[in-house]
Design a binder for these strands. Sequence first.
DNA 1: CGGCTGTACTG
DNA 2: CAGTAC
DNA 3: GCCG
Length: 537
Amino acid sequence: MAPKRTKNKAPSADPQGMFAGMVVFLIENSVQSRRLQIWKQKLEQMGAKIETHLSKKVSHVFAMSSDALFHHVDKDQLARFKGHVLLYQWLEDSLAAGEKVSEHLYILKVDPEGEDVPDKNPKLEAANRNSSIHGEQSHCKRIKSSPEEIKHTNEESKGDIETNTASGLSNNEPNSPSSVTSGPEIPSTLDKDVGTPTSSLPYSPPDLNKDITEIFGKLINIYRALGDDRRSFSYYKAIAVVEKLPFKIESADQVKNLPGIGKSLQDHIQEIVTTGKLSKLEHFETDEKVRTISLFGEVWGIGPATALKFYEKGHRALDDLKSDNSLTNVQKLGLKYFDDIKTRIPRNEVQEMESLLQKVAEDIVSGVVVVCGGSYRRGKASCGDLDIIITHPDGKSHKGFLQKYVKRLKEMKLLREDLIFSTHSEEGTDQGVDTYFGLCTYPGRELRHRIDFKVYPRDIYAFGLIAWTGNDVLNRRLRLLAESKGYRLDDTGLFPATHGSGSKRGARGTTSLKLETEKEVFDFLGFPWLETYERNL
DNA sequence: CGGCTGTACTG
DNA sequence: CAGTAC
DNA sequence: GCCG
């Protein structure tokens, strides 16, 4: 019998989730990323807790096969493990059955010699091809890509790095800009599927619990405006959890042991589902101080501290600020174009500007790669700003490019005002990233949009691409994951955790691991691959 | 109780 | 250095 | 705010 982790819960299992009480550790080795993603989601939805490493609390370990299992975890550690080690197929069958099926057919032996697979379903054999990617310990030192493997994972990726980088790089088809003006969602072209047609997903994540997430969303903005980013982020995470629930919450009990939802948020949810509102939010929204500071904080260049300062000076409206002589230059611009900057940009216009920017760039340095990242690259129908990521395949022609580029773009009146301009890549200096933040206009208009340029040396381009494609939740998760594996990840690379020896600025000297594509980075970290349009976490 | 990403510019 | 932004 |  499955030894119940008789937590402190009623004997009657949680009616909500069939996996309630389970603490699972997933061996991601040789699992198709799409399926892994689904399994994780299902497990969490139905009450299981997912651990990032094989800790004492883990009750179940899942693996594709015994091969995958032994290549990924330490045998001794496994031998000491007291819980259940099962094939993923148990999950599949349980989900299909709607209840936990008997485990005995799916048990993986934890034999120290373990080369004997118990009773492996034939179909698993197929799914379990290369189980020996990582020959090393749990810390895979190398991410060697033999030609064969590349063929497996990345069918058509045989050309130059730049033209295929994992997907959706410059394979935005060179359509005449005007011909594709209507695709609101999903980017026009995507590579051949990764095997699983997205149709097999029984998910229908409609806006159940929208009342809750909307209120939390407002609290996010309020706390951010007040400078309490931590608290703000807690609500942010809670929204993601609530949105995944397949049912409408009617009682706080139903969210009692979901990750990211503690006592306080339970109370909030309880109040919302019973009264339809949250007194705490009502209070905030009628508080003049909160309202004013929130408003001021929407101006580019004004943060919580400055907003508070202006409030205490007696300012109450944006017009009051315009006459304040303590405004910095960028704050003046943020104020002047307040409404402009807040106006979202239709996807098709971003697409046209991207191709225009590509043409202008090519005109300056042949071969330069210009990609619009951010929410555009994630397939959104409209964008708040433009994130332009640039590199050059030859690894050196990016140097000094940004100055010329900005100059040219100003001449043609695409770039209008500067916010920040910094360069590091001038000959001699380090592996810096050149950055430009400013305001731009769509050809023929005056409406200002925020635009960012980031120029990366070729060898760290993949990291910049990931970071500036986002979203921020994904970036955080990747960084946390990297850290858990003894690395430090940022938009300039993936570094072995230089322990103790302060990872200060100088540590930049330590070069990043050489990973050339986004997929290589995901793979190295063991994070299931996500197409760009799947990164809206 | 302390961490919650980490880095660079502006003034 | 504080504040801000990505 | 949540988590360990």
